[in-house]
Design a protein around this nucleic acid. Sequence first.
DNA 1: AGCAAGCTATCACAGGCGTGATAGAAAGGG
DNA 2: CCCTTTCTATCACGCCTGTGATAGCTTGCT
Lengths: 207, 207
Amino acid sequence: MPKVVDPEARRRTVIDALFRVVVREGLQRASLRVVADEAGLNIGSLRHYFASQGELMDFAMRAMRDRVSARLERRVAAAGDLAGLPREERVRLVTGLLEELLPLDERRRAEVTVFLDFNGAARTNPAFRPLAHEVATGTRRLVHRALARLEQAGALRPGLDAGAETERLVSLLDGLCLNAVLHPEVLTPERCAAVLHAHVRELTRED
Amino acid sequence: MPKVVDPEARRRTVIDALFRVVVREGLQRASLRVVADEAGLNIGSLRHYFASQGELMDFAMRAMRDRVSARLERRVAAAGDLAGLPREERVRLVTGLLEELLPLDERRRAEVTVFLDFNGAARTNPAFRPLAHEVATGTRRLVHRALARLEQAGALRPGLDAGAETERLVSLLDGLCLNAVLHPEVLTPERCAAVLHAHVRELTRED
DNA sequence: AGCAAGCTATCACAGGCGTGATAGAAAGGG
DNA sequence: CCCTTTCTATCACGCCTGTGATAGCTTGCT
């Protein structure tokens, strides 16, 4: 009966425009008017799909989380059951999974940039806090499981506390993201990956 | 001839108010009117000491940098020449210096919070970029020197690349700051310090 | 054809922002 | 005392923001 537009697709183009604006000019510049312009839409049209600014932001950030976590789960699934794999293969797979969290190409760079801005905003914006908290615990769980899988294979150096190492690795990854996004000329993707590799190598080194 | 107010002191009270606002409500909420209210000043009065918003921000961020770097230099000076000190003493001093960069008490927590917001803004605000870059290279230099001092004492594990370890330690510190500020309930000051201690211990461990 | 629902486009309003301009108060030096 | 400089306090302007309201267009079903 109505028009022929797919609302799902429309919302996707809008939040893609939002992400472009956030990456280019920051979250605080992502007003309804600016995003609408970026999407080539009229603001009234945009508001037909997102009743309010809060709704837009909420939808966008959930979409971002879904996109990333889908990629991570795909990667985990592709790795399959690690049981029976040789030690080096496990280390390689786990490292690849952790690399997925770093801004090593343009796509991941954009995602990480948005996440950083969003997390920063979540500190003072109560509306963002639940999702930010969820993402934080989600990555912790992922990293913890990654370390646990190494431990199961006996690939982890003995005497390491899994909890403490999780915290260390999570903070290292976040710090790498931060520096790679804010100072890309000093922390290039190559150096970024190299630091992660060195860290994992140290965790899995046998004495 | 004029009034009796010390402009230096006035500016300090203003930027202290600014810092309080940034910590409590974020950098983007730190408008001239809000900061003036927080300082108990009229906006016109505030503008007598800071001609524009840019000037206020610039002054505030430089003041923050000066405050932190002064504390760091004091600490370095207090440590004095490390030559001749026993290995464990060196490690202890270096660890203490690095702890100065973490939000382990309210003062450092406020500083780190402001710095994170400021750095985030610097990504898209050209006016902030020079100072943000300077701070970033400054911490790198500090961390690099700290590691070098350990190396001089033979306290560093052999086979470590100083440059790579600097990058790793800087990112770890930044990540710890980020998580401690954004998720204080999961990364408490104690855990934060513990992670740093574990890292330094690992760097200085002999096999 | 015509109705209804989905969609696009605009207008208006209130509120916050930085800033230029300006007027008045305060206070020490002549 | 008064004059000059510093300081405080307000007003107004233009811009941008989110949002409520509304009118008009498009499209497909009956």
